[in-house]
């Protein structure tokens, strides 16, 4: 009892309110590394980024302009280069929208519905990631090639797929298929189906629910998936190389054209075209950054809730 009384009268020392005793930005040694450790870590990261990401990019442009701007422009204006650029753009323009539709459909089906064979579908979507692009290309040759399963029938009807634009587009679609679906599935899984159920219970049709509720919820993930898909569609080499046949001015995409130029020791031209491909990638990244900057608030609001 007496101990209790004592403790009531004399409260134990409570921690005094914290008063910073030094400069405001004083470092807390318990949670901060020593200065030399900090600098070593930062330097390692910076050197790594310089050598592996930034330097190659600079090297491409430096090599491209080594023999002057005029050589550079001539290399780009060469008919084969222009046709390769056109083919690359056309391929991406077909493959990306198709994969956009496929990817959204697949992600929608997988995340909003339960059905038999769902895990099989998920594995199939991952297939292009796990199979080497060369194998994918060979599969198309095997199916659509002159000696392939459908070869005779295609020949009869005068349809060219392998060693022609359709084959290149098909191979590109195959290789870039997972990008959009893979980007959307985790996002849509996390979002669940409550919003859709709410919309339907309020009287919206499936179509209206998709346009007004689902699509706005996934638009940023979708955009990111499209950009990744697009970058890969521009740059795909392996699968396209197998099905294209490397016909100059006809079935050469930019990456194939670069390889040919390089193998012919036309380094300046090779790097000039490579710089074009790199520029396309940079434009893509810039577009993404711009959209994030422009709609950053909305993006943050969407994520927060």
């Amino acid at each position: 009892m007496s101990a209790q009384d004592h403790s009531l009268r004399d409260p134990p020392d409570l921690p005094r309110p914290f008063r910073p005793s030094g400069p405001l930005m004083q470092r807390n040694s318990a949670i901060t590394e020593r200065r030399w450790v900090q600098w070593t870590l930062i330097a390692t990261a910076v050197v790594f980024l310089l050598f592996f990401l930034f330097l190659p990019l600079v090297a491409v442009f430096a090599e491209a302009f080594r023999n002057g701007v005029s050589t550079y422009l001539i290399a780009l204006q060469e008919p084969d280069a222009r046709s390769a650029l056109n083919l690359t753009l056309i391929t991406a323009a077909i493959a990306v929208p198709l994969n956009l539709v496929f990817g959204v459909c697949a992600a929608w089906a997988i995340t909003k519905f339960d059905f038999r064979g769902k895990s099989l579908l998920i594995s199939l979507i991952d297939l292009p990631f796990s199979v080497s692009p060369v194998v994918a290309g060979l599969v198309y040759v095997l199916v659509f090639g002159a000696q392939g399963w459908l070869g005779p029938w295609l020949l009869e009807h005068d349809i060219k797929i392998v060693f022609a634009v359709p084959g290149i587009v098909l191979a590109t679609i195959f290789v870039t298929f997972p990008f959009i679906a893979r980007e959307l599935i985790p996002l849509m899984q996390a979002q669940g189906t409550d919003d859709e159920q709410a919309a339907v219970s309020l009287g919206a049709s499936g179509w209206k629910t998709f346009w007004r509720v689902t699509l706005p919820n996934i638009k940023w993930g979708l955009l990111y998936g499209v950009l990744l898909c697009n970058a890969r569609a521009f740059g795909e080499f392996g699968a396209v190389s197998v099905v294209s046949g490397h016909i100059r001015g006809m079935t050469n995409t930019l990456p194939l054209h670069i390889e040919i130029l390089y193998n012919e020791y036309a380094f300046a031209a090779a790097f000039a075209v490579a710089s074009l491909l790199a520029s396309l990638a940079l434009v893509t990244l810039a577009a993404k950054s711009f959209l994030e900057w422009r709609y950053g608030d909305e993006l943050a609001a969407g994520r927060r809730h």
Binding site: D195, A198, V213, A301
Partner: peptide, 10 residues
């Protein structure tokens, strides 16, 4: 009315 409201965030 859903447990977590399911308001349309956008």
């Amino acid at each position: 009315v859903f447990q977590h409201y399911a308001l349309f965030k956008h």
